[in-house]
Amino acid sequence: MSEENWIEVGSTDSIEEEDLIRFDHQDKTFCVYKLTDGFYATDGICTHEAVHLEDGLVMDDEIECPMHQGIFNIKSGEALSPPACEDLKTYPVKVDNDKIFIKID
């Protein structure tokens, strides 16, 4: 994999624990999460309807959509609770010198 695919999101202290930030890159939106065991990234829009997950609630390893309470596993993207039934795409994350990077394909 080439180095260019890693995009800088921001510094590690820009996200509180058990929370997320929205990150827009070109015409796409992502959510980057800080969980107890590290940083994770998913698509930023719910797979049910076009709603930004940045306003959702992070609980343990799950993100709950603010519109209809569809729930996804943040680490695997798996849709866990209806009305969400399509999985959420996830992206690799790395931390380098207190900076967060996500790998977008």
């Binding site: 709603v51 940045e54 306003d55 609630l57 709950e64 959509c65 603010p66 519109m67 309470q69």
Partner: peptide, 11 residues
């Protein structure tokens, strides 16, 4: 507006 009350209502 869509997305703005869900988190607070859930809490």
């Amino acid at each position: 507006i869509i997305g703005k009350v869900g988190r607070d209502i859930r809490i």
